[in-house]
C-alpha cells in the first residue's frame, strides 16, 4: 500500500519539500545555541514539529514501518507501543547526557553544572600554500566548542523524546 492516500497531493508535496528545511533550521539552532538565541529546547521542538508533519500527512504507519522498521500485525495494533518505547528510551538517554555534563564538572573539582568553552582554530602551518588558507582554516572552520553544547544535546533528546511520545500516545488513541 502507499502512504498518505487520504491527503491531497499538495499536502504531500509541500511536506516533502518542507521537512528537510525544518530539520536544517533545527540543527542550526542547536549548533548556535550556546552563545546565540536557540539551543536544545527550540531545536527539539522544531524536530518534533517536523515529525508531527509526517504523522499528519503520511500517517503514523509510515513513520513506524519506514523509519523504525516495525512490522505491522494484520490486526494493526501491535507496533504502537514499540515506537513509544523508543521515544521513552530517547528521553532517558537525553536526561542522562544532560545530567552527565553536570556531573562531569564535578569530576574536575568544580561545582555541579559548571561549563567551560574554547575557540578551536585549525593550524594553517602546513596548508599555507593553499590560496585563501587563512580564510578557509582560520575563519570558516573556526568553531566555538562549549561544554554547554553537550548539555544542549541532552536537552534536545529529552524534548524530542518527550514530545514525540506524547504525540504517538495521543495520536494513537
Amino acid at each position: 500500500m502507499s502512504y498518505g492516500d487520504d491527503t491531497t497531493v499538495i499536502a504531500r508535496t509541500v511536506a516533502r519539500i518542507t521537512l528537510p528545511l525544518v530539520l536544517v533550521v533545527a540543527i542550526s539552532l542547536l549548533f548556535q545555541g550556546h552563545n546565540l538565541p536557540g539551543g536544545g529546547f527550540i531545536a527539539g521542538v522544531l524536530t518534533a514539529a517536523a515529525f508531527a508533519l509526517v504523522y499528519i500527512v503520511f500517517g503514523m504507519e509510515y513513520v513506524q514501518e519506514t523509519i523504525f522498521g516495525d512490522e505491522y500485525e494484520p490486526d494493526g495494533s501491535v507496533a504502537g507501543p514499540a515506537v513509544v518505547d523508543r521515544y521513552r528510551t530517547l528521553f532517558g538517554v537525553g536526561l542522562a547526557v544532560a545530567a552527565g555534563t553536570g556531573l562531569g564538572a564535578m569530576a574536575f573539582g568544580k561545582p555541579f553544572l559548571t561549563h567551560t568553552d574554547e575557540v578551536v582554530k585549525p593550524s594553517t602551518e602546513y596548508v599555507a600554500w593553499i590560496p585563501g588558507a587563512d580564510f578557509i582554516f582560520g575563519t570558516l572552520f573556526k568553531f566555538h566548542w562549549a561544554t554547554a553544547f553537550l548539555f544542549d544535546i541532552g536537552v534536545y533528546f529529552v524534548v524530542v523524546g518527550g514530545l514525540l511520545a506524547i504525540l504517538a500516545v495521543v495520536g494513537g488513541e
Binding site: A11, V45, L46, A52, L53, I56, G59
Partner: peptide, 21 residues
C-alpha cells in the same frame, strides 16, 4: 514553521475529524 504545522493540523481536523490517523 510552527504556524505552518499547526495550520495543516487544524485544516486536517476541520476536514477529516481527526489529526493523526
Amino acid at each position: 514553521i510552527i504556524g505552518f504545522v499547526s495550520t495543516i493540523a487544524v485544516a486536517r481536523y476541520v476536514t477529516e475529524g481527526d489529526i493523526v490517523e
